[in-house]
């Protein structure tokens, strides 16, 4: 038996919204520690990895490891029926062919029950090796979203280059070219919210090119976190990570554009 409950069901809806345009369906792997999900886009350019810790749930019970094969568009249809402040409970039997989703309003005056049919999904799991990245940038997620959106009107590839002082996003297209640089926030700056700052940890300057189409897709997760972390290395995928307080994180890996 698998059972879990989230006070803020809305978070789960946002999570599914952050995955469903990139990956059609996938296996929720539930074990005693939490829920994980991995999936690639149909062109095998990006990988999304979701990790939810049991501590983030108000209730969590997983007697035996279960795999829930889920079509995200179908799940999203059911989650649409959830109120913004509803509590969400998910239940599944060990060998069941469906999972139940229960939405309950704050005062328990409204309870909604849905059964989602599960799928058998034969999906290859990829191992992501532990890597020391050359540059790690933390910045406001809304700022990253705006940059990706605005630059994609000019070109389809962004070059991200990082130095100790700044991270630069450059684009070129038929109409011309441009770049936007964000400077590292002053370390002595005690005023203001930490989530508003741009922090750069740099081992070595790095520069790589990425398809804006995918980055724009990743920014669907902006609603999940005030900040985003970008990790870059040489000839390795970019990691775009959104952390949700104590619930866990969603990470997107994007293969760089490489010389022919």
């Amino acid at each position: 038996m698998f059972e879990c409950a989230l006070i803020q069901g809305e978070l789960f809806r946002k999570l599914i919204a952050s995955v469903q345009d990139l990956v059609q369906d996938g296996n929720f792997m539930c074990d005693a520690n939490g829920i994980s999900l991995q999936g690639m886009d149909s062109s095998h350019v990006a990988l999304v990895a979701l990790a939810l810790k049991k501590e983030g749930f108000v209730e969590y019970r997983c007697d035996r490891d279960v795999t829930l094969g889920i079509n995200f568009a179908n799940l999203a249809k059911m989650l649409k029926c959830m109120g913004a402040k509803d509590r969400l409970s998910i239940r599944a039997q060990d060998e069941g062919d469906s999972a139940s989703f229960v939405f309950e309003s704050e005062d328990s005056s409204r309870v909604s029950n849905f059964e989602l049919k599960l799928m058998q999904i034969d999906q290859e799991q990829l191992g992501v090796p532990e890597t020391q990245y050359k540059a790690v940038i933390r910045m406001p997620s809304s700022e990253f979203q705006r940059i990706c959106k605005d630059l994609s009107a000019i070109g389809d590839t962004v070059s991200i280059s990082v130095t100790k002082e700044a991270v630069k996003f450059s684009v070129g297209g038929d109409i011309g070219s441009g770049d936007m640089s964000l400077r590292q926030s002053e370390s002595g700056d005690v005023d203001g919210d930490d989530s508003e700052k741009v922090m750069i940890e740099l081992e070595e300057p790095v520069q790589q090119n990425f398809a804006l189409r995918y980055l724009n897709n990743f920014t669907k997760a902006t609603a999940l976190s005030k900040t985003v972390t970008l990790s870059l290395g040489t000839d390795m995928p970019l990691v775009t990570e959104y952390k949700m307080d104590n619930l866990g994180s969603i990470r997107y890996y994007l293969a760089p554009k490489i010389d022919e």
Partner: peptide, 14 residues
């Protein structure tokens, strides 16, 4: 000129 890389190149099949 550049081409789009594939993600599997960087990760290990399990």
């Amino acid at each position: 000129s550049q081409v789009q890389g594939k993600i599997q190149k960087y990760f290990i099949k399990q």
